[in-house]
C-alpha cells in the first residue's frame, strides 16, 4: 500500500524475524516483517495482544536483535552490532516513551529529562540543563521544571517522559501504549502533543491496541501473528485538539 515518499527512510526493515525458544517450543513473534518508515511520519502500529507489537518495537528501538533479516536505522545496519554499540545508538537516535512513564522516583522533572544526556559525553552539565529545559518547555512543562516525579499527575509524568525522549533530538520517537495508563481527556492532551511534534517534523512510531488512535496518525500498520496485515496511509488525519475541545468539560475544572 506504499505511496511514494520523497523523504529519506529513517527505518527500514527487511524480512525481520524474531523467534523465541521457550523450552522445546519456538514462539514466532515476528515472522518476516518488511517496511520503511520515512522521516516525518506519524505511524501507529496496531494489533491484538500477542500479535508482536512490543517485539517489533524492541527491534526498532535496538533493544533486541532479529533472529534473521536486517534492520537499518538511519541507513545503518543494526543486527550485527554489539550490545554497547546498540546502547550508543539508542542514546543518539532513539527516544523511548513507555506506557508507565518510567520516571526516576523522587527526582525532579528536569533531572529526569537530563538522563539520556548523562550518557552523552558531548554535553556538559550546563548544556544538559539547557537542553532539558528546552525539551520541557516544548511539552508545555516550562513551569514544572523542579517538580518531583511523584508530585505530578499521570499526564504530566507522560509529558516529562516525552521531553526525555526528545532531549537527545532523536531520529525517531518510539512510544509503546503511551496513552494506555491515561484517562480519555489526558490521552487526548498527550495525543495533541504528539500531533504537534509530528507537525514540527518528528518521526513517531506509536504502538497501541486502541484502533481510535490510528485516526490521528499519518499511517497505520496492522499486525497479526507477527506479520503485517495492513499498511495504510491516512489521508484524513483527525485533529486531536478538536476532539479534545469536543469532550465534555470535567466537573472540577
Amino acid at each position: 500500500m506504499k505511496e511514494e515518499n520523497n523523504n529519506k527512510a529513517v527505518i527500514e526493515l527487511d524480512n525481520v524475524k524474531r523467534y523465541f525458544h521457550v523450552g522445546s517450543e519456538v514462539v514466532k513473534a515476528l515472522r518476516g516483517v518488511s517496511f520503511k518508515i520515512y522521516e516525518g511520519e506519524f505511524v501507529t502500529i496496531q494489533g491484538t495482544s500477542g500479535s508482536g507489537k512490543s517485539t517489533l518495537l524492541n527491534q526498532l528501538g535496538c533493544l533486541d536483535t532479529p533472529t534473521s533479516g536486517e534492520y537499518y536505522l538511519d541507513g545503518v545496519p543494526v543486527r550485527k552490532m554489539s550490545k554497547s554499540q546498540r546502547a550508543h545508538l539508542r542514546n543518539k537516535k532513539i527516544g523511548f516513551i513507555f506506557q508507565n512513564y518510567n520516571l526516576l522516583a523522587n527526582t525532579t522533572a528536569v533531572e529526569n529529562v537530563e538522563l539520556p544526556l548523562m550518557y552523552n559525553n558531548k554535553f556538559n552539565s550546563r548544556q544538559r540543563r539547557e537542553a532539558a529545559i528546552k525539551a520541557l518547555e516544548a511539552v508545555g512543562l516550562g513551569d514544572r521544571l523542579y517538580h518531583k516525579s511523584n508530585q505530578m499527575s499521570g499526564g504530566q509524568m507522560q509529558r516529562v517522559a516525552i521531553a526525555r525522549a526528545l532531549v537527545n533530538n532523536p531520529a525517531v520517537l518510539l512510544a509503546d501504549e503511551a496513552t494506555g495508563n491515561l484517562d480519555t481527556r489526558t490521552s487526548f492532551e498527550v495525543l495533541v502533543l504528539f500531533q504537534e511534534l509530528y507537525k514540527q517534523g518528528h518521526t513517531i512510531i506509536f504502538v497501541t491496541h486502541n484502533p481510535e488512535i490510528a485516526e490521528y496518525s499519518s499511517r497505520n500498520i496492522y499486525l497479526r501473528d507477527g506479520q503485517i496485515r495492513e499498511d495504510t496511509i491516512n489521508t484524513n488525519i483527525k485533529s486531536a485538539a478538536e476532539a479534545l475541545a469536543a469532550l465534555p468539560k470535567p466537573v472540577d475544572d
Partner: peptide, 16 residues
C-alpha cells in the same frame, strides 16, 4: 531493576 532497564534504554552500556 526497572531503573537499570531505563538507563540502558536511554543509552547506558553494561560497563557504565
Amino acid at each position: 531493576t526497572k531503573e537499570i532497564g531505563l538507563r540502558m534504554a536511554v543509552g547506558a552500556t553494561g560497563l557504565v
